[in-house]
Design a protein around this nucleic acid. Structure first.
Length: 480
RNA sequence: GCCGCCAUCGUCUAACGGUUAGGACACCAGAUUUUCAAUCUGGUAAUCGGAGUUCGAUUCUCCGUGGCGGUACCA
């Protein structure tokens, strides 16, 4: 049998988590969990210039909100730590020196300025390899003297490096097109290339799941695995999620960071379900899938190769599906994820719960709670023209309202919108002159004062007997 | 420039040599109906172009085109 599957999510804490990053995390998680494996969280903070102080905390909280659980990582623990690369510097240095010793890598004393000079007139020029030919004695003397250096990989010339990608198949590169990669920077930090190879090996990662922008770098990584004499993990490169211009998701439109979606009121179920289906599908026609259903269905061979546009319209639809499935209480709880207006916050809990009950099927995102009509807060201003149903008359309208008021004053059961529907229906049936429209329309308008709103029986239920009757009587008044 | 990857409705995608090229979002029309939402029914809409291989190509090969990515002491 196969060894245990171990995947990892290895983000750089350089800011908020990108929606593409979350999908990478999701696939790594799904691949592991679909196979009884483990997922490791590893923080790749080797770029000190882009380091963001609370990046790690923010990242972990949003990933946790989304529902991904890691088996190992910083703050979680595990047998393969530390899980933060800045705490593994000695390790990288040790392995880099091992490569130097075995003639697989070399010290380079070229400064950034030197390299810039080399590139003058040819932006894409590769490193000249000047220091590659320095004698070991000279290099070591200069290191001993304290000269600043980096360690570069001695890329073998004139051959092919290949690997078998689990999604893209066999991919090869000519080593002549690969630069002598810097492995250890002059500040003592490893570059991504060294750190990722060392860590994935030491942490016994079986499957490297990452975006396909890493494919060109994988040739370098193959060379490193060879130089160390290590077995290479399976590589699973993922198609990229792009914006509607075909390029990266646009920050301007606010559709980049997971936090933004959360604040806009997209449910975590929606986000996970939606991004899972961007580049992968379960094969059938089922689209609404919970996290555990995704785990049950996930397989690498159904990951597709082409990049996917991020279609907000479809995500809106999906969010609505999930929103409608939630109870009013559940929707109320989810309101913690967004910024709720003071006006709404001031509402009584029971009252808000009722509003959510009737409004949730009309909401696209949680933030729509801030757009509920004024009629939930104050009695509406009514327009006589609108009060009368368009297929009705003023006289019938008046008659309908009178009948409704009499009926409702006597009604004791206001416990459900369904029952109140029956009550209104009885008013219609008790009077041959009245149609549904003659009754339902003016009641709804009298209660809401707007062209579009939930049904009259729903509004009655939400507003309650006292408020409803006051509004109905006010409507009756303006007809006189 | 060089290297690599990709290519089915507007979008997400199914079809792993033989289908009237299927589903979903969006859109349009109808039904329901007291408005909106929801729901139901129907409709418009796609294999980038050109060669080959094959009895037969969305599917395999090559060329072209287009898109994307890489080419850093960033990840």
């Amino acid at each position: 049998m196969m060894n245990k599957i171990r995947t990892r999510f290895a983000p750089s804490p350089t800011g908020y988590l990108h929606i593409g990053g979350l999908r990478t995390a999701l696939y790594a998680f799904l691949l592991a969990k679909a196979n009884n494996g483990e997922v490791v969280l590893r923080i790749e903070d080797t770029d000190r210039e882009r380091y963001v102080a609370d990046g790690v905390e923010r990242l972990m909280s949003v990933v946790q909100w989304a529902g991904i659980e890691f088996d190992e990582g910083p703050n979680i623990g595990g047998d393969f730590g530390p899980y933060t690369q800045s705490e593994r510097l000695d390790l990288y240095k040790k392995y880099a020196l091992e490569l130097v010793k075995n003639d697989k890598a070399y010290y380079c004393f070229c400064t950034k300025d030197d390299l810039e000079q080399e590139r003058v007139g040819n932006e894409q020029a590769m490193y000249s390899g000047k220091c590659r030919h320095l004698s070991k004695e000279e290099a070591e003397t200069r290191v001993a003297k304290g000269e600043s250096y980096v360690i570069r990989l001695k890329v073998p010339k004139g051959r092919q490096v290949c690997f078998e990608d689990a999604v893209f198949g066999k991919i090869c590169f000519d080593t002549n097109t690969i630069d002598d990669q810097v492995l250890l920077k002059s500040d003592g930090f490893a570059t991504y290339h060294l750190a990722v190879v060392v860590d994935d090996h030491l942490m016994e990662v079986s499957h490297v799941v990452r975006g396909n922008e890493w494919i060109p770098s994988t040739g370098k990584h193959v060379l490193l695995y060879e130089a160390f004499g290590w077995e290479m993990p399976v590589h699973v490169h993922l198609p990229v999620i792009t914006g509607d211009d075909g390029k990266k998701l646009s920050k301007r439109k606010g559709d980049v960071f997971v936090e933004d979606f959360r604040k806009a009121g997209y449910l975590h179920e929606t986000i996970m379900n939606f991004i899972a289906l961007l580049g992968w599908n379960p094969g059938g026609n089922v689209e609404i899938m919970s996290l555990s259903e995704l785990i049950g269905a996930f397989s690498i061979d159904r990951i597709k190769k082409a990049n996917a546009y991020f279609d907000r319209e479809k995500m809106n639809w999906m969010n609505k599906q999930y929103l409608m499935k939630l109870s009013a209480d559940e929707v109320a709880e989810r309101l913690d994820d967004i910024e709720v207006d003071d006006k709404v916050k001031s509402l009584d809990n029971e009252y808000l719960r009722k509003i959510l009950e009737v409004e949730k099927s009309r909401m696209l995102v949680l933030a729509d709670v801030n757009n509920i009509g004024d009629h939930y807060f104050v009695d509406p201003k009514l327009d006589v023209e609108k009060l009368v149903f368009k297929k009705s008359t003023r006289e019938l309208c008046q008659e309908a309202l009178q009948n409704v008021i009499i009926k409702l004053e006597a009604e004791g059961d206001w416990s459900s919108a369904e029952h109140l529907f029956e009550v209104l229906k009885e008013v219609v049936e008790a009077n041959v002159r009245l149609s549904n429209g003659d009754v339902f329309w003016p009641v709804r308008y009298a209660l809401s004062g707007v062209d579009q709103s939930p049904s009259p029986n729903e509004l009655l239920w939400v507003l309650g007997k006292e408020n409803s009757l006051r509004r109905l009587k006010a409507a009756e008044q303006i007809l006189l």
